[in-house]
Design a protein around this nucleic acid. Sequence first.
DNA 1: AATAAATACGACCGGTCGGTCTTATTTCCG
DNA 2: CGGAAATAAGACCGACCGGTCGTATTTATT
Lengths: 212, 212
Amino acid sequence: MTSDGRVARGDRTRTAVLDTAVALATEVGLDGLSLAQLADRLGVSKSGLFAHWRSKEALQLATVDRAVTQWEERIAAPALRAPRGVRRLHALHEARIEFYAARVLPGGCFFANTEFEYNARPGPVRDRLAEAFGRWTTFLERLVREAVELGELPADLDVPLLAYEIDALGISAAMRSRMLDPDATYRHARLGLLNRLRALCPDPTLLPEGPS
Amino acid sequence: MTSDGRVARGDRTRTAVLDTAVALATEVGLDGLSLAQLADRLGVSKSGLFAHWRSKEALQLATVDRAVTQWEERIAAPALRAPRGVRRLHALHEARIEFYAARVLPGGCFFANTEFEYNARPGPVRDRLAEAFGRWTTFLERLVREAVELGELPADLDVPLLAYEIDALGISAAMRSRMLDPDATYRHARLGLLNRLRALCPDPTLLPEGPS
DNA sequence: AATAAATACGACCGGTCGGTCTTATTTCCG
DNA sequence: CGGAAATAAGACCGACCGGTCGTATTTATT
C-alpha cells in the first residue's frame, strides 16, 4: 500500500487545473493565460497555483503535456480501434474533425493556436510544442506507411506528402470553423480526405460511401 | 495644389509604424503587441503613437488593414500578372510560399497567426480579421472558377472544395515551416498543389514540369 | 509675420502582471 | 496522538500595461 492520499488528491487537483488551463489557453493564448485569471476561474487563490507549479513557465509546460494527453485520448485512441490502413487514417481524421465540431475547446484546437502563437518565440515552451508536433507528424506518417504496406495505397506514394496534406486539411478546419461558416468547413475537411483516399485506394469498399 | 506636407509626412510615418506593427504582431501577437514596445522599436515615444491612433484597438485595426494591403501587393498582385486559369492559381500559391520562405515576417504569416489568436475573442478586431479572411476565400474561389470556365479544370469540379484545399496547403506551410523542417515543408506545399492541378488539368503544358 | 493644425514629447495615473513571503489549515504516516 | 508534509490563503513587491495630460516643436496657411 504505497498510495499516499495526499499526493493522490494533489494529482486530481493538478489534472483539473490543467484541463481548465488547456481550455483557457485556447481562448487567450498560452502566454496570455494569467495566473490570477486561472485561479479566479477555478475559485482558488493565486498562491494555491504556485504551490503546484513554481513558475508560469512550469505551468505552461504542464499544460502542453496535458493537451497532448487529451489529444491522444480523444483523437489517436479512437483511430487505433479502427483496422490498420486507410480505414484507420479515415477514422483519425474523422475523430479530429468531430473534436473540433463538438466544440470541446472554446478556441478549437490547442495545438494550432499555440503553435502559431509560439512560432517566433524561442524558449522551452516553443521547444515542447515543436516536439509534440514532430511526434504527431511521425505518428501520421506511420499510419500512412502502414496503409501502403497493406497494399491499400500505391507503393510509390510520397508518404510524408500525403501526411502533410491530411494534416493541412485538419489545421485549416480548426482555423476556418471559427472565422467563417463551420458547416461548410467541416464538409470540405471531410470530403477533401475522402476524395483523396478514394482516388488512391484500389479497394473502394474500404471507405464509406458518403457524399460524392 | 491640394497636397499638404503635414498630412503627407503623417501618412509616411503612419505606414512605417504599421509595417513595424505587422512584423511585431507576428512575433508577439496582435494583442500581445504593446504600445511601449512598439514605440521603443521605432525610437519614438508612446504618446507619439497615441497622436496617430486614439487607442490600442484603433492601432490593431489599422495594423490589420495594413497587413491586407501588404498581402495584396506581395501575393495577389504578382498572381494577377499571370494568365487567367490554372497558371494564375499556381502563381498565387507560389507567391505565397515564396513569401513565407523569404522570411518577410518573423512570425511567418500575419493572418494565420492573428486568426488563430482571435478565433475565440469576440470584438471588432476579430470581425475585421474574419472579413479579410472571407474576402481572401472569395478571391481564391473566383480564381478557381475562372479556371473551370476556361476549360482548364473539370466542369463538375467542387470549386469551394478546391479553394479550401489550396488554402489549407498554404496555412499548413506557415505553421510547419517555423516548427519543423522548413525545406521539406515548402516542398510539400508546392508539390501538393502541383500534383493536384496536374491530376485535374487536361492540358499538362499549362503547368511547369517541376519534380515528380 | 502670425496663427492654427499636426506631430511629438515626458510625466503620470490606476490596474494587472508574475512572483515572493508569511501564516493557517488539512491530511496522512509513524 | 503527535509531527511532518502538502495545500491553501492573503498581503505585498517591482515591472509593465493602456491611457491621459500639459506642453513644446514643426509646418502649411493666411
